[in-house]
């Protein structure tokens, strides 16, 4: 079976076709395209929802055309259309929902609304090295930070989540304070590579008490105070760059340590040693290295998608949609965007 996936929940338009390998094509992503709106929002220092919606309605159909052409497939070769129905920005979601639902209607195919976080959670399934159930998943992006026990598709138990900022949000906000363009998280991580250990020390929030919830706003404030204090020092450009890199290093180290401590705790609590990481921050190399170290000590392994499937993309939506379609879950003629949608309310497959 073969399915078209449409992702428009935030500031990226992602389109892909996934094939389950039961026909004449090999299993995997047949074609995928991503259009990032970063340039649209950079001047505002964050995602402007109305501008995001306006861009999705321009880009979705052209990307679908490109993906069909690259895959050398026609709509008659498809078995379904999947689209992100939530959580996310309601106006942005509605663009993908309205186009996806009506395309399926016109092509006389089933339409499958997909939970964005289930997409992220299952993204490592698109790789060669696939984790067996059950496993613990850390979903970590600009919008979410959560730990989930996964016993199968749709069998999700929320173990913990951020009580305030998402980890990626803390990265972006700290980057902004260092004068980096939105979204500065990945640039901050790059900066940290030339930073030195030990010059600054930031807190590891909520690691000194039991539980698996996260908090990143205090860490962000601590970094902000340090940046403000150090900015007043009269430094030559070279020393200033080093100071910024050292702050970036210490900040990243604190986020990575915090995430790692909670992951280790979650794995022990669940008596598991397989860890999946997904979402934009899962592309962070320091985080990957640290989590590889932890799971190795537990005799397990860490699994993650290739970098382009860590951030929002259509491939994960196509994959998750096909799992739901095979279980007979698809929409009637209505479509609905659900901006807040707890992951653990999804039915098991």
């Amino acid at each position: 079976m073969r399915i078209l996936g449409i992702e428009t929940s935030c500031d990226e338009t992602g389109i892909a076709i996934y094939d389950d390998g039961q026909g004449d094509l090999p299993e995997g992503i047949v074609a995928h395209r991503l259009y990032s709106q970063i340039a649209v929002h950079a001047d505002y220092g964050g995602v402007v929802p109305e501008l995001a919606s306006r861009d999705h309605v321009r880009k979705t159909i052209p990307l679908i055309k490109e993906v069909l052409a690259e895959a050398n497939l026609t709509p008659a070769d498809l078995d379904g259309v999947a689209y992100t129905a939530g959580p996310g920005l309601v106006g942005a979601l509605l663009v993908g929902c309205s186009i996806g639902r009506s395309l399926a209607y016109g092509w006389d195919l089933p339409a499958v609304p997909v939970h964005h976080m289930e997409g992220h959670l299952l993204a490592p399934m698109l790789e060669d090295n696939v984790p067996d159930f059950p496993f613990v998943a850390l979903l970590v992006s600009g919008g979410h930070t959560m730990l989930v026990r996964v016993d199968g598709i749709g069998k999700y138990e929320l173990l913990g989540e951020s009580v305030d900022d998402a980890a990626g949000e803390a990265f972006d906000k700290t980057a902004k304070l260092l004068g980096l363009d939105y979204p500065g998280g990945p640039v901050l991580a790059k900066m940290a590579e030339s930073g030195r250990k030990g010059r600054y020390k930031f807190p590891r929030p909520m690691t000194d008490r039991p539980g698996l919830d996260f908090s990143f706003s205090g860490l962000k404030t601590s970094a902000a105070n340090t940046i403000r204090k150090e900015e007043n020092a009269d430094l030559n450009p070279e020393s200033k760059a080093q100071m910024q890199a050292d702050i970036a290093y210490a900040f990243q180290e604190a986020v990575v340590d915090t995430l790692a401590i909670k992951c280790k705790r979650a794995l022990k609590q669940c008596e598991l040693n397989r860890l999946v990481i997904a979402g934009g921050v899962s592309a962070n190399t320091a985080l990957r290295a640290k989590l590889a170290e932890i799971t190795k000590k537990l005799g397990g392994e860490v699994f993650y998608p290739r970098p382009e499937f860590c951030t929002d993309n259509g491939a994960m939506i196509a994959y998750a949609g096909l799992q739901r379609l095979k279980a007979g879950v698809y929409a009637d003629l209505t479509f609905k965007a659900t901006p807040r949608w707890p992951l653990d309310t999804l039915p098991p497959v």
């Binding site: 309605v57 979705t60 159909i61 679908i64 509605l94 663009v95 993908g96 929902c97 309205s98 186009i99 996806g100 639902r101 009506s102 395309l103 399926a104 209607y105 016109g106």
Partner: peptide, 8 residues
């Protein structure tokens, strides 16, 4: 969105 989907 519905127009685009139906028309395409």
């Amino acid at each position: 969105g519905v127009t685009q989907g139906l028309a395409f």
